[in-house]
Nucleic acid binder design. Structure first.
Lengths: 260, 260
DNA sequence: CGTGCTGTTGAGGACGATCAATGACGGTGG
DNA sequence: CCACCGTCATTGATCGTCCTCAACAGCACG
């Protein structure tokens, strides 16, 4: 078993393992091969950047092991557009991994204290060559991320209440997929404003309403969802776009099938 | 030479060849291998759907050979959110190619009469296995598309005039990359409204202003940009996110380099 | 020569931004 | 232990952008 062989890793890599497994890369040798090349552990304090100059060679892939981060861009006026939040097991800079000239402005920042690790591209490439399925899984992961972007665009015209509710539902769903079942969302209103494309002031008014509706906790600064079902209704949330499709093996099954 | 060997294909596959070449897949044998598996030619009239049920097997990839299409989703209220426009050489459904369970609502529609072709996944997989670089190129193309989504999100908070100007700049830039140098944008105001997330009425007012500013042609219904430079200034357009990065070969060069 | 789609214009209203000020909390250092 | 500070949260007032509704004009199509 993967986790048992290296007990120290079990807690640290737990999310990564779970994520990769859910994507269909579930053979132990494949998993071990991937975990085996996860090397330099790093830490980033809240507010710091995570990925570093992404167009420097040799290239690498960064994995978030603990904490919450976000992928964002700064606007000319200094404001921040957050594209997506990142949780343990997520690849921080997969979006630029295959691009020869990654977007300079695109940044990954730590929203809480974070712990990361890196995978050197030379080793990753070698591993992919040996386990081609790994390459497909990574491609697949990056397409799921693109799906998140599209979903955000789709929400763009909804009223603020629904948009925020939807954003919260997404965070809950993604954290549930990692085994985190509490209703706590480890973000600030500021983060949500920058992700939803709303002013902080207005986010706060939306929060006021969400609390009055009994969807969010009334106590403390932490954001805590207390009625998920109702929240999902308000947001009309359909989490299928997040679906870590249980079986990538479908792939291998159907590829060499039939005509036209 | 690729094009010369099959003169009939030269015009039809021109855009596809150009696009693939610009991505670094420039060896003739690789190109020929790809073109060799482009099979069933189809046509779609303006308003029709292009991709068909995307989760049916055997899977395939659709290439747009001529015309203009768009990737969109319908909202509950029937309105349409256009994520991106597609031009000759674009892969219509690459976004769902690697996903086991593609989003059902995600649709590709013909905005003008279109001509398409398909590549069967079985053949594509075999070709990729023989020319792994092709796999990387396709992954790369799908990441560029994700970059377009992010750019759209980034524009989300800009005033309507800039947003529309930016959208127009993007279309011009993408068409220039295909060798189309006219300022004509083959879209309707309705299409732009659905892409920009604005009401048709307001798009029209923005057009009124853009024309008054001397950026768009005053005559006829067609959308024609007459002052690109000024439009780019208004939009503060930086097309780097579209960059078909000239050399994917950088990749092979740097992968097996160095330490850490 | 209608019929339908696209484009155009006006009027009123709503949602969310901005500006401004204050409150609450946690951490740090005296 | 308390004073201080910075960050985040909260609330009020005003304003602007953009939406909606509605009507009509132009053009292309059969």
């Amino acid at each position: 078993m993967v986790g048992l062989a290296r007990p120290a890793d079990a807690a640290l890599f737990g999310a990564l393992v779970q994520k990769i497994r859910s994507l269909g890369l579930d053979r132990d040798d494949e998993l071990d091969a991937l975990l085996g090349i996860v090397r330099g552990r790093r830490h980033a304090k809240r507010g710091e950047g995570i990925v570093g100059r992404s167009n420097t060679f040799p290239r690498r892939l960064t994995v978030l092991l603990a904490g919450t981060a976000c992928l964002y861009n700064r606007r000319e006026d200094g404001s921040r557009q957050i594209y997506t939040f990142q949780y343990p097991g997520d690849f921080c800079d997969l979006h630029s991994y295959v691009l020869p000239e990654p977007d300079e402005g695109l940044t990954v920042g730590a929203l809480t204290d974070c712990s990361t690790a890196i995978i050197r591209s030379s080793e990753l490439e070698a591993t992919i060559e040996r386990y081609p399925k790994l390459g497909r899984v990574l491609w697949c992961v990056s397409m799921l991320e693109a799906g998140i972007f599209r979903e955000r665009l789709l929400m763009g015209r909804r009223p603020a209440l629904e948009r925020v509710a939807h954003l919260l539902c997404e965070q809950l769903a993604r954290r549930e997929a990692l085994g985190t079942c509490s209703g706590l969302v480890p973000l600030t209103q500021i983060d949500l404003a920058d992700a939803a494309g709303l002013s902080v002031v207005h986010i706060n008014r939306v929060f006021h309403d969400l609390r009055k509706l009994g969807l969010l906790s009334e106590t403390g600064r932490a954001i805590e969802v207390v009625d998920r079902k109702a929240l999902r209704q308000v947001a009309r949330f359909d989490g299928r776009y997040l679906d870590t499709p249980k079986l990538l093996s479908q792939w291998q099954l159907h590829i060499d099938e039939a005509p036209n």
